[in-house]
Simulated scan of single mutants.
Amino acid sequence: MHFLTIRKGTALLILAAFFAVVTAAGWWLLKAGDKVVIKETAGNPVREIHMVTGEFMATLPSGKKIEAYRWDPGTIFMEKGEKVRLIIYGVNGKEHPFHIENTTIKGTVKKGEETAVDLSFDKEGTYRLICEVHPDKEHNGPMIAYIVVD
C-alpha cells in the first residue's frame, strides 16, 4: 500500500506540473500576438485612448449625501510628440466643460455623447484635464485627470 501511495503522489505531482506547463504555454501563445493598436490618419499614427465620466455617491452617518465626479482613467501616459486622440464618453452628469491646464485645449463632454480631443505635446510634464463644473471638493470634485508626457 505504501508503494501505491508514493506512486499516486508522484503521478499527481507530474500531472500538476504538466497542467502548469500547458497553462503557461497557452498564456504565452495567446499574448504573443498582442500589439499596440494604432489607427492611421493620413499616414500619421494616432493612438486612441478612451475615457469616461463617472460619479461616486455615498451617505454619511449623519444622513448627508455626498457625491464626486471623476474622469476614468484618472491618468493617461503619452510620449512627447506622440499624437493621441482622447475620446471621452459622457456617462454621468449632464455636461462637463473642461480645459487642459497650460494649453488652449478645451471642450465639453455631454451625457450620452463622445467628445474627441486631439493631443500632442512638445514638452514633457504633467498636464491636468480639469472639469470646470467640478474643480474641487466644494463642487463635487475634484474632477481632474492627469496627462503624463514623457
Rank of each mutant, 00 (worst) to 15 (best):
N44G: 01
L29H: 15
G9A: 13
K39C: 02
R47N: 03
D34C: 06
E55R: 14
A11D: 02
H50S: 13
A32L: 01
T53E: 11
M51A: 09
M51K: 02
K31Y: 01
M51V: 04
E40L: 13
A25R: 14
K39F: 06
K31R: 03
V46C: 00
F56I: 10
P45I: 04
T23F: 15
A58H: 05
G54Y: 01
G26H: 11
L13D: 01
A20Q: 07
V36T: 12
V21A: 14
E48F: 02
M51C: 05
L29Q: 14
P45T: 08
L12W: 12
G9L: 12
G54W: 10
E40W: 15
A24C: 11
L29K: 14
L15K: 06
R47Q: 07
G9H: 07
G43H: 13
A20G: 06
L29Y: 15
L13E: 01
E48T: 01
A16F: 05
A24Q: 10
K31D: 00
R47M: 08
F19N: 10
L29I: 06
A42H: 14
T10L: 06
L29S: 11
R47W: 05
E48H: 06
M51S: 10
P45Q: 07
A32Y: 11
T59A: 06
A17G: 00
G33L: 09
W28I: 01
L13A: 11
T53W: 04
L29G: 14
M51D: 00
G26V: 11
A25T: 15
D34R: 03
G9K: 04
K39E: 05
G43Q: 08
L15H: 01
T41H: 14
L30K: 07
K8I: 11
K35C: 04
N44D: 13
K35F: 12
N44E: 08
V22L: 10
L13M: 10
A58V: 07
F18M: 04
E48W: 00
V36S: 11
W28N: 13
I49Q: 06
A25G: 12
E55Q: 12
L12Q: 14
V21K: 12
G33K: 07
T41K: 15
V37G: 09
V52D: 02
R47K: 13
A16G: 03
V21N: 12
V22G: 01
T23I: 05
E55V: 04
G54S: 14
F19T: 01
G33T: 08
I49D: 09
V37A: 12
V22F: 14
F56S: 14
H50C: 08
A32H: 13
W28L: 04
A16R: 07
A24L: 15
A16T: 09
G26N: 15
V22K: 05
V46F: 08
V22Y: 11
A32R: 08
T41I: 15
T10G: 04
I38N: 04
M51W: 07
I38W: 07
I14P: 00
I14L: 11
A42F: 09
F18Q: 00
I14T: 07
H50R: 08
K8A: 09
A25H: 09
L13K: 01
A20P: 00
E40T: 12
K39H: 13
T23Q: 10
L30Y: 10
M57A: 13
K31F: 03
A16E: 08
V46P: 00
V22I: 15
T53N: 11
